[in-house]
């Protein structure tokens, strides 16, 4: 039987701001490459068929399921995983802080995917209503929280980000 190594080809992409070069087989999923050769285990496999969102990552800023994404399709792309989401200084982002403080994480297995999906939402819609948040997270299953405190965390983080953006604008002397 043919082994994977025979068919694996070089793959290079930007992962959380760093260029990585690995080898990947044609059948490899982005999830396999992230968790295996890249050693980023924050992205979880919850179902392997796009139903649960635990493997959510950003590819060129768009949130996708890494379990459904062919690894070789990210050649030259910008991939962001949960490990790449922080406040810029390595500390927790507003979303990560809010998830901890407001009870958005329990067992934590869905949390990385949930935060990545929420990040994509807030990038597109800085002030989402609760229904917008629920709609944006419907591809992310959680069995622990009942989602209530997740939605609260995203709303709170959105407010914190808006306040931070306002403060940054004010500091820069720009008109608000």
């Amino acid at each position: 039987m043919e082994t994977r190594e025979d068919a694996a080809v070089p793959l290079s992409f930007e992962l959380n701001g760093e260029t990585v070069a690995v080898r990947a087989a044609p059948a490899a999923r982005l999830l396999d490459v992230l968790r295996g050769p890249c050693g980023r285990t924050g992205t979880k496999e919850g179902c392997g068929e796009g139903e649960c969102g635990a493997c959510s990552v950003l590819v060129d800023g768009r949130v996708v399921n890494a379990c459904l994404y062919a690894a070789l399709d990210v050649e030259g792309c910008r991939v962001t995983t949960i490990e790449g989401l922080h406040d810029g200084a390595g500390g927790p982002s507003a979303l990560q802080r809010a998830f901890v403080t407001l009870g958005g994480t329990q067992c934590g297995f869905c949390t990385p995917g949930m935060i990545v999906a929420a990040e994509a939402l807030l990038a597109a819609n800085p002030d989402p209503a609760a229904d917008d948040i629920r709609g944006a997270l419907r591809g992310n299953l959680c069995r622990c929280t009942g989602y209530v405190q997740i939605v609260e965390a995203v709303r709170s983080a959105a407010a914190a980000r808006r306040a931070g953006a306002d403060a940054a604008r004010a500091a820069a002397g720009a008109p608000s």
Binding site: R35, R40, T41, G42, T43, K44, E45, T81, I82, E83, H86, P92, L95, Q96, R97, F99, V100, T101, G103, G104, T105, G108, F109, T111, P112, I115
Partner: peptide, 21 residues
Amino acid sequence: RAVDRPDGADKAAGRTLYIHD
């Protein structure tokens, strides 16, 4: 009081190790 849960920060950062990891 609602202090931050001790396992929360690592979970939100994707650093917690499950059997899969």
